[in-house]
Design a protein around this nucleic acid. Sequence first.
DNA 1: GTCAGACCTGACCGATCGGACAGCTTTACG
DNA 2: CGTAAAGCTGTCCGATCGGTCAGGTCTGAC
Lengths: 182, 182
Amino acid sequence: MARTASALRGHILEAALGLFVIHGYRGTSLHDIASEVGCSKASLLYHFASKDAILTELLTPAGLALNQLDQDLAGLSGDQAVEAAVTGYVDLALRYRREVKLLFSDLPEMLNNSALSGIPGLTERLLAALAGHSEEPEAVVGAWMVIGAVFVTSASDVPVPQEVLRTQMIRSALRALDHYPE
Amino acid sequence: MARTASALRGHILEAALGLFVIHGYRGTSLHDIASEVGCSKASLLYHFASKDAILTELLTPAGLALNQLDQDLAGLSGDQAVEAAVTGYVDLALRYRREVKLLFSDLPEMLNNSALSGIPGLTERLLAALAGHSEEPEAVVGAWMVIGAVFVTSASDVPVPQEVLRTQMIRSALRALDHYPE
DNA sequence: GTCAGACCTGACCGATCGGACAGCTTTACG
DNA sequence: CGTAAAGCTGTCCGATCGGTCAGGTCTGAC
């Protein structure tokens, strides 16, 4: 069964993501993943240095994209920042929808993961952008509301086509922020 | 050290809640709790039938309150339902703020807990009320956004006094729903 | 063919987990 | 006082976890 350019690696990542989303990171054992893939537990650890390495590889693309958003937002201020933050955040969350579910599945574990070590700082700057860099309670609370709204809605199975979902999420988020673009 | 009407029981619940919130349910061992309390692991299992029983007892009050909200919402419709749902939900989430954090700490585990077996049905009805019993995508997406917004904001450490937080959460949620009371 | 290296596995290991249990200490009560 | 119940603990147990390792199998290059 030994194939060169092993396709097994991809199958492992796919199966691990599915199981992590359903049962959580800690709630999924290497044995569970191996059973799902149909290989031995030792095979997992041949392709990945550790269980944590699987998680890191699953989260890295989304982490990079979040960093990119952070950079894109760095130069903006005021209304521009708010609108760019909302659309960028919504697009990001929808693009990495399964990864968002993964984050939910075991939050304390995720915050300890090296691939996400920058999350607190990134969140803080995203919050600031959503609040239009205001520190008024109304703006700060609104920013938190949008963070949660987009995060949870992306992770949920809303019975609405993705494009409609995107449009409505952006509109609802902007309203929550009391921000009405021209 | 044996006291009648043991105060230890309460200390166990308090310590368990704190540790569960930080490290997650699965990330906290009975040994961890016992160390925090300053008693033996066997003592925990004298006062509680199992680790799961501790979790259930922590979540039960919030679960009952959620059921109460569900009943209060049952008779309402239209605008009345929306406003009652928003204020009731926000008040509930803020009142059981630590329990909301607990829910976050290990979502897959929580959904399997008996004390929360009714959550899916309750969430569905709360969503319907928030959407004003409409099935338009705008209303449905808005309802999901509010579910997430309130949930996450309650679990976060927003640097704003609780009363201000409550007011702004309700206002932001109503705007997200495109609902503007007289 | 053959040889190096990639691929894969069964068997095993130490650590940790939730939980069971027998027995010791303290308290409340007649 | 005595005694029954409640409170508490040290110790042990089976299960499960992530991870290691020696060795078997397959593939592609020469």
